[in-house]
Every structure is written in structure tokens, then in C-alpha cells.
Amino acid sequence: MGRGKGNPTGWIARVSTGQVLFEMDGVNFANARQAATLAAHKSCSSTKFVKWS
């Protein structure tokens, strides 16, 4: 119809398999796990929580 489709409302980026999405430092394990769980509910793919030693 028109030339423009309006202003974009968000950004999209491809995430390949095995790519790290979030790294947390300076947070205790329980808070980091809870934050990762909340973030995983917002993504539309399966996620895994990994703790580096």
C-alpha cells in the first residue's frame, strides 16, 4: 500500500546453537538461576543454564 511500514518496535537477532546469551558475574548462584529462568521464559527457544567453575 504505502512505502513505509512504520517505526520498528523491536530488534531481532539470529542465535545459533551453542551460543552464549547471558553471562552473569558478581551475583550469588540462586539469584543468577532465577534471573536465567525468567529470561528463558521470554525466549522462544530451549535454553540451558550452565555454571562455569
Rank of each mutant, 00 (worst) to 15 (best):
V15S: 05
A32V: 02
S43R: 06
C44S: 10
Q34G: 05
V20S: 03
G4L: 03
K5F: 01
G26T: 06
S43G: 02
G4T: 04
L21Y: 01
S43W: 01
S45K: 08
A13L: 13
A40N: 00
A39T: 03
A30C: 05
M24S: 08
K51L: 15
T47F: 05
W52D: 13
N31T: 13
P8M: 02
T17W: 09
S53R: 11
L38W: 04
V27D: 01
G6H: 02
S43M: 13
A39Q: 03
V50E: 03
G26I: 00
N7F: 12
C44V: 08
L21Q: 00
R33Q: 15
V15H: 06
V50L: 09
G4Q: 00
I12M: 08
A36H: 04
A40F: 01
Q34P: 01
T37M: 09
G10F: 14
N28L: 07
K42H: 08
F22L: 09
V27S: 06
G6C: 06
K51A: 11
S16H: 10
E23Y: 03
G26K: 05
S53G: 11
F49S: 00
F22I: 14
A13M: 10
S16R: 08
Q34V: 12
K42P: 02
A40G: 05
S45Q: 08
A32M: 01
Q34N: 09
E23V: 11
T9A: 09
W52L: 15
N7C: 06
A36C: 14
W52I: 15
R14H: 05
G26C: 05
G18Q: 04
L21E: 01
R14P: 01
V50Y: 06
V15T: 09
G2A: 11
F29R: 15
A30V: 11
K48M: 12
A35F: 14
M1A: 12
S45V: 15
K42C: 05
V50G: 00
M24N: 02
A36S: 07
F22R: 03
S43E: 02
F29P: 12
T47Y: 05
M24L: 15
F29T: 08
N7D: 06
T17S: 13
G26F: 01
L21V: 13
G26Y: 03
G4R: 07
A13G: 01
M1N: 07
A13Y: 08
T47R: 02
M24V: 07
T9E: 09
T9F: 11
G4E: 03
V15P: 00
M24F: 10
D25V: 11
N28G: 08
A39R: 03
I12K: 12
C44T: 14
S43A: 08
L38D: 12
Q19M: 07
V27A: 05
P8D: 02
N7K: 15
N31W: 04
G10R: 12
P8L: 04
K5Y: 03
L38C: 10
K42Y: 04
L21I: 15
N28E: 10
V50Q: 04
K51W: 08
W52C: 14
F49W: 13
D25S: 09
G10K: 14
M24W: 07
E23G: 02
T47K: 05
